[in-house]
């Protein structure tokens, strides 16, 4: 159960809710998706692009993007890449293990701003995970949008996330899906190249487009530039930024990017605000 003793105390931003792992799926060699159910209380309502702080007992806490369906009901999904430390523990949890969750936090994609126009989602590597809820939200109200394009790049075909779902998406006539890898193994018949190379030819109208971008920062830097080259207005390009986070609630100061707190002002920001910052070193 959740904490607290002293009756006079306010709820603290550091209070956790317990969630149990109901399913664990290995996505790629270093990435797994956990499905979490609350031990008590209702499901965690979130907006696409938001994140939670997930705590592995005795080990530590990390910020994780939510990768589930925002209309999907009871389970909280996180797609986690093992980069050491807490993520190493989290990706090795099994059904029945309990974690602590705080959140959801942050400003999300605000997908509905794309209604009536085209939407382009550009994902690099694990960046597909926080974009998945956005795409699912769009597909749930598909008629409200015009053309919808998903551009996805990753290192090798073995690193492709949500492969089954991608195939289903590819099969839809109302969704353009284009995938590329950095290195193609023998027998690879798909595209090779950074995801930026997919932008000049993708089927969207820049003048009506809302672009949502997530991936490693160098990738987002060049994707932003490529989208601008194609004529998408800067304020219609949104990026999800990542910085060190200890609290997730705007108190610890770690995630500051100039005057922006990535946890509270972001993690999603407009490219008009970010463009200059992306090209500066060590800010």
């Amino acid at each position: 159960m959740t904490a607290t003793t002293a009756t006079s105390q306010h709820a603290s931003a550091f209070d956790l809710r317990e969630f149990r792992v109901t399913q664990r799926r290995q996505d790629t060699r270093d990435t797994a998706t956990l499905s979490l159910a609350p031990l008590s209380g209702g499901p965690l309502d979130f907006r696409p692009g938001q994140f939670t702080m997930v705590y592995a007992f005795g080990v530590g806490e990390v910020p994780l993007s939510i990768s589930g369906d925002p209309a999907g009901g009871k389970l909280l999904l996180h797609t986690i890449r093992d980069v050491g430390g807490v993520t190493h523990t989290l990706t090795r949890l099994r059904r029945g293990d309990v974690v602590g969750v705080r959140g959801p936090y942050g400003h999300g994609w605000d997908v509905t701003d794309g209604r009536g126009g085209d939407v382009v989602l550009v994902a690099g590597g694990i960046g597909l995970a926080p974009l998945r809820p956005a795409l699912l939200q769009i597909l749930a109200r598909r008629s409200e949008y015009k053309r919808v394009v998903l551009l996805y790049g990753t290192r090798t075909p073995d690193d492709v996330l949500f492969a089954d779902e991608l195939e289903r998406w590819r099969g839809r006539f109302d969704l353009e899906v284009d995938v590329t890898v950095d290195y193609g193994p023998p027998q690879w018949r798909g595209k090779v190249g950074l995801v930026t190379s997919l932008i000049p030819r993708a089927g969207f109208d820049p003048s009506t487009t809302l672009a949502l971008v997530c991936g490693p920062e160098p990738m987002m830097r060049y994707v932003g530039a490529a989208l601008v080259d194609r004529g998408v207005p800067r304020r219609r390009i949104r990026l999800s930024m990542e910085r060190a986070m200890d609290c997730g609630v705007g108190l610890c100061g770690h995630c500051q990017l100039r005057e922006l707190f990535v946890c509270v002002d972001g993690p999603v920001f407009g490219y008009d605000r970010l463009e200059r910052l992306l090209w500066l070193r060590e800010v």
């Binding site: 904490a3 002293a6 603290s12 550091f14 149990r20 007992f57 309990v98």
Partner: peptide
């Protein structure tokens, strides 16, 4: 100190420091 937690079989119990 923000909180203490003790593991149980199926989760953990959290308590916040008491003192005003």
């Amino acid at each position: 100190l923000l909180w203490r937690a003790t593991a149980r079989d199926d989760g953990f119990d959290m308590t916040r420091p008491d003192a005003a």
